[in-house]
Structures are given as C-alpha cells and as structure tokens.
Nucleic acid binder design. Structure first.
Lengths: 158, 158
DNA sequence: CTCTACATGCAAATGATTTGCAACAAGACA
DNA sequence: TGTCTTGTTGCAAATCATTTGCATGTAGAG
C-alpha cells in the first residue's frame, strides 16, 4: 500500500470524517422526487414515487440515502405523524412549517414563518440561545371545513 | 343475561363508546409519576420511575394506560425526538411548548405560548381553521451556552 | 360475597427502520 | 480503456418501539 500517495475520494478528507458521496442513478432519482415534492415525504412515499419512474429500488436503499443526506446536512428529518413515520425533505426546499389537516390528513406548507422573532426573544429571556425551531399547526383545511359535521369525529394526528 | 337491568360501569355509558375506567394501583402510580414530572416522558421513562416506587409493572401496562388516557383526552402524545420515541404528558400539566437543548438534550418547558394569536390568524388567511399547534425551540440552555466550544459539535436531535 | 367488565403479565406479533454480507458500480488513475 | 479502491445496493435477517392475543387476576357495583 502506497501510504504517501493514496487515492482521496473527496477533496479534503479527514480521517474519521465523512466518506465520499457518489451520485448514482438511484440517488439522482430519489433527489429528484424530493425536489419535485412540495411537502415532506416518508421513505415509503419516496419509494412509491421512485418506482413510478424507475422500478426495483430497494427500500433499504432509500433509507440509506436519506440517512446519508441527513448526516451531510442537506436533508431534514421531521417527525410529524403519531404513527411512527418519519418525514424527510431537502433543506433547500424546506418550508419549515406546515399545517396538518385533521380531516384529510394532508400537509400544507406555510411559506413564511409567522413567529420568527417573537419566539427567539421570548426564549432568550430565559437564558436559552435559540438556533432553530419547529412549528406545526393542526386544524381543518378549506375543503374539510365545509363538509365537516363536527370537530372531534376524526382521529387525532398528534 | 339480564338485558334490561345490566351493570353500567360508567354513569352515562353509550354503546360503542368508551368503556369504564378503573383506577387501579398501577394506574395511580403511573399518573403520579406523570404529575410529578415537569416534562414529557417516554413509556420507558415512566416505567423506570414507576419501578423505583413499585416494581414489577409491565411495560405493556404502561403503554395501555397511556393509550387509554390519550383516548380519554386527559393525556397528550408528542413526538419530539427523532429516535422514534413518543413522549407523553398529562393535559392539565401540559406546557404545550418546550425548548430542547442540543447540548445536554434536556427539555425545558415554556410557560406561556409566545405565538398564540399571530399563528392562528396567519393560517386562517389561507383558509385553514386552526384548532391546535405545536412549537419546539432548539438551541442551547444557559449551562451549555457557557461551556460550549463550538456549535455543531453535538449531534442533532431534530 | 358474588359477579362481570376491565386490567394485567407474558410472550408473540407488528411495522418502521437498520444492518451484515456478498455482489456491483462510480470515479480516480495508469 | 482497464484496473483498483471505495462507496453503493439488494436481500434477508436483526432491531427496537409499540401493539396485541390470551389466560389469569382484580376493582367495584350490587
């Protein structure tokens, strides 16, 4: 082994650090699905959409790709449902905040954060330095509002 | 079977509705643990603390009690960590909002919601009727702020 | 004290996610 | 282009939190 002239996968690889990332066909498709989606997706959501384009990608590959991207910081994992599903979305495309409809169980992105500053300053009064926050609104979307009998007849998400 | 004079567990029991709830020794202890805790707990947290007082309660009993209370509306389930654990807290004691420290991974309750109205009205402009919301702040607590080398050296919770 | 619905323990079942392993392929370099 | 190394994939088995079936135990009304 030529120890003073070995191959380096990345430009500045540090021992014990992140390994090289290869842009494979599978990953390209997975990323495209995430780029095209306006809302966070679960691993199975992604597989479903990926297979519409290019079948025979394993679920474990989807999970591994997502993990990889999360640890590289370009993907975000958000827990929103109470049935144990994790949702993922690209950081660049992250809307950060969502409204979840308790009627149809769909998620609607909120473009701009309605709480930005008030939150941070309130917490900082308590000695807490805020670096991030998550906000989810629960309720009923335009469609479910109209056809709805009474609140509470639906099962809770949260 | 005496169908016109049968026992009714609760005062106003409706067929197909909630069944009777019995306050057993196990449940009393579980509830006490939750009452004494200032922060949401996982099922295993609860079992751990319960067993300090009264050993030999099964984990499945904890889960069943929590489910029971959630479906009765006196307990709240909140997903906060990304490692797949569900957190529970009594509704009466619910602070609703928390600060999670990325340094020591502790949770600190926020007494009053800093965003109440602004959130609701913003969403309602989009045709969404808000019935509830969840807010979590991430950052560093007073203690971790001082002894901290550089942000990012800790593993992310979310 | 009796009786019945509800609660519990245990072990097995679920369901999402992770991992071991052998086969494969991307990208650097000759 | 061919070789070589490291990263990637599929498959099946392993994990881990949570749920459930079933037989047994008990709270609480009468």
């Amino acid at each position: 082994m030529d120890s003073e002239h070995r191959h380096e996968a990345g430009a500045n690889q540090v021992p014990g650090q992140l390994k090289g990332f290869r842009m494979t066909r599978d990953r390209r498709i997975i990323l495209q699905v995430l780029r095209e989606s306006g809302i966070p997706l679960t691993a199975e959501d992604i597989l479903e959409r990926v297979n519409a384009t290019m079948p025979d990608i394993a679920l474990s590959t989807v999970y591994r790709t997502l993990d990889e991207l999360v640890s590289r910081g370009s993907m975000q994992r958000t827990l929103l449902s109470n049935d144990g599903h994790a949702f993922f979305e690209l950081v660049g495309h992250a809307h950060r905040h969502y409204m979840v409809c308790l009627g149809c169980h769909q998620m609607f992105p909120i473009r701009k954060c309605p709480v930005e500053d008030s939150v941070d300053s309130a917490a900082e009064d308590l000695g807490f330095e805020v670096t991030d926050h998550s906000l989810v609104l629960y309720g009923y979307c335009r469609h479910c509002r109209s056809g709805r009998q009474s609140p509470g007849s639906d099962q809770r998400i949260r």
